[in-house]
Design a binder for these strands. Structure first.
Lengths: 146, 146
DNA sequence: CTAGAAGTTGAAGTTGACTTTAAGTCAAGC
DNA sequence: GCTTGACTTAAAGTCAACTTCAACTTCTAG
């Protein structure tokens, strides 16, 4: 199998495979006249890479998964080690996204005539974080800017 | 107020404010001996920028919000125009994140001894998309790789 | 034999939202 | 007068995950 076929099978571009190789995620395959030749088995790390990418791991984390443990470390242990942190990240991200969704829902009901009016409402919020006065746009500006 | 104070008030770095100005989000403020001087009012677009950023808008979208509509366009209309698209994006993202979370939860229960074993389980899934055989790792590999 | 498709390499470009750096200006305090 | 710190500019650097480019080689079909 040549690089283009391997790439196509996994829905990637050839350049991505070369990149993974350069980054040390994939080993260097056999060559035939200078060209990479892949066996069915040599494709298995690619299955993992694609799956892990879909699951939200970065290439750095995937490299760790593949080569960052003593060779005898069971797969389950490796996944758990990495997944714990990733689950936390994801949970936080989901919460944040849901908060944004809520803000956007409120924004859809904005009745301000000008943006300046919105800004006044918002800065009221910002200056009196615990204040009881409801501005026309009722969001909580949780977290600092940035 | 000089740039450092304005920045601090909004939890930004001075360089970010200069950047927003360069990108046309903020107008050019008055100068005193070449240095930017801000009034309380000149800060109001910054309130909006910070808020919109938190809500998930890109700087490009924020620029559109601030300057991409006829001057008479009510704030509510502007927000709605942009929010609709963003809500869709967010909803999709949340769904995807939740799917990832579920996958990660399953991964935590992985009992494979080697990663190669995982890969075999996964490629089984990939080769028989509608297949009824449950591999040890039970995720649905929805969507193609990449 | 030749055109063109597919492969090779290293280096540079892409995206967004900035930050950092270099080199210079300006004001305040000692 | 001198130092320190805050500011100015344009240009370059950062991050991740690739892609694109330039220049070259090799394989395949006609």
């Amino acid at each position: 199998m040549r690089i283009a076929e391997l790439a196509a099978r996994h829905g990637l571009q050839s350049s991505a495979i070369r990149y993974y190789e350069k980054e040390g995620l994939l080993g260097t395959p056999l060559r035939k006249n200078g060209r990479r030749v892949y066996s069915a088995e040599s494709a298995y790390p690619l299955v993992l890479i694609c799956f892990a990418k879909q699951t939200g791991f970065t290439l750095g984390e995937i490299k760790l998964l593949l080569h960052g443990f003593p060779a005898t470390t069971p797969a389950g242990v490796r996944w758990r080690r990495l997944a714990r942190k990733k689950i936390k990240e994801l949970t936080a991200m989901i919460a944040r996204a849901q908060a944004m969704e809520k803000m956007l829902g409120s924004l859809m009901r904005c009745r301000c005539r000008t943006l300046e009016q919105c800004a006044r409402g918002l800065s009221k919020h910002m200056r009196e974080p615990g204040g009881g006065n409801r501005s026309r746009l009722k969001f909580s500006l949780e977290g600092t800017c940035r």
